[in-house]
């Protein structure tokens, strides 16, 4: 029997028994749980995408209504520097300018602080210090923005007025709002950058140390460049957050749509204006009511462009390290 098997003679050497002749069932069988979960997950995905599309649709439709008013022209909307709905002046530039100024000031505060904190946490802090500081930073990110608003109004503004003079710095001003928005987005930059920095392989740090680099040289010349795409992405996420931030600017920056580059004067951002107008008694279909959708649409495009930009930057500057 063994010999036959060795030379490959086609002859049954194992007796036919029930065990090896019975048909094994390999047919597909229904898995209801599996398909149910697939459907549920699809619905989850669909709802979030549908909601986004719905928002864009509503913004677009209401904006069209706004531009259909005879008092409004698209050209004036994007070129004029006066926003006075009471006298039918709808130039969005003062609002855009205020938004960009608060965001710029916020970034000037948040990028150095946040990146510094991230470098400290990832490169210098002991395991113990990190385990205390990182949750603290995340708590800072969880403080309600209205608290930050009053912090701006009752702490930062008096500070600025004492530093630069009460006739220079108005009670409501762009600088105070910008600084506090900066503090608000700092944890975002810090935690996202820290993630990017700590995922740089330690082999690169070792290489730098082995060449006689100090900790600082290693951090600044090796780790940060290797994590640059993540750091830039963090900054852009934070920038989007600063542009969309409402409460702090509504409370601290003032309620007058001035077109000014002086950060110590009051100005109104797009979000602040939407919050103020929609808080009042607006009648449906009025020109003021429609205007906030047009502003919302502009805001949407600005953040959309930033998001596309961040994607592009991440892909363009990604330093592949492995």
């Amino acid at each position: 029997m063994a010999d036959q098997a060795r030379v490959g003679v086609v002859e049954r050497t194992v007796p036919l028994t029930d065990a090896n002749t019975r048909m094994i069932d390999l047919r597909k069988r229904p898995r209801i749980g599996e398909s149910l979960i697939q459907i549920i997950l699809f619905i989850c995905g669909f709802i979030s995408i549908f909601t986004t599309l719905g928002i864009v649709f509503v913004l677009g439709r209401e904006s069209l209504l706004f531009f259909a008013h005879p008092e409004v022209s698209l050209v004036e909307f994007v070129t004029k520097t006066v926003w006075q709905p009471a006298i039918d002046e709808f130039g969005i530039l003062p609002l855009v300018n205020a938004t960009l100024m608060t965001s710029l000031i916020a970034m000037l505060v948040a990028v150095p602080l946040g990146l510094g904190a991230a470098i400290y946490l990832s490169e210098y802090a002991s395991e113990r210090a990190r385990s205390i500081l990182k949750p603290l930073l995340e708590i800072l990110a969880g403080v309600p923005t209205v608290v930050y608003g009053y912090f701006a109004l009752t702490f930062v503004t008096p500070l600025l007025r004492n530093a630069f003079g009460k006739d220079v710095v108005q009670i409501y001003n762009v600088a105070s709002a910008g600084i506090v928005v900066g503090i608000l987005i700092m944890p975002l930059i810090a935690t996202l950058s820290e993630d990017a920095l700590s995922s740089v392989p330690s082999a690169l740090r070792q290489a730098a140390f082995g060449l006689g680099a100090t900790k600082f040289e290693t951090a600044v010349q090796v780790v940060v460049p290797a994590a640059l795409s993540g750091v830039i992405a963090a900054c852009i996420v934070a920038m989007s957050r600063a542009i969309g931030e409402t409460m702090v600017v509504a409370l601290a920056a003032g309620a007058s749509p001035n077109f000014t580059f002086n950060p110590f004067l009051p100005a109104e951002t797009m979000t602040g204006h939407i919050a103020r107008i929609s808080g009042g008694d607006l009648s449906y279909g009025s020109i003021d009511y429609d205007s906030i959708f047009a502003i919302g649409l502009v805001l949407f495009f600005i953040t959309l462009i930033l998001n596309i930009l961040s994607r592009w930057i991440v892909n363009r500057f990604r330093e592949v390290y492995d």
């Binding site: 082999a203 082995g210 100090t214 390290y321």
Partner: peptide, 20 residues
């Protein structure tokens, strides 16, 4: 230690060039 490493160099197990 930094001065020491400038005179006594090191090559590691896995090649670890900088992403530069």
């Amino acid at each position: 230690a930094v001065q020491v490493r400038r005179r006594i160099g090191m090559v590691f197990q896995k090649p670890n060039p900088f992403p530069k």
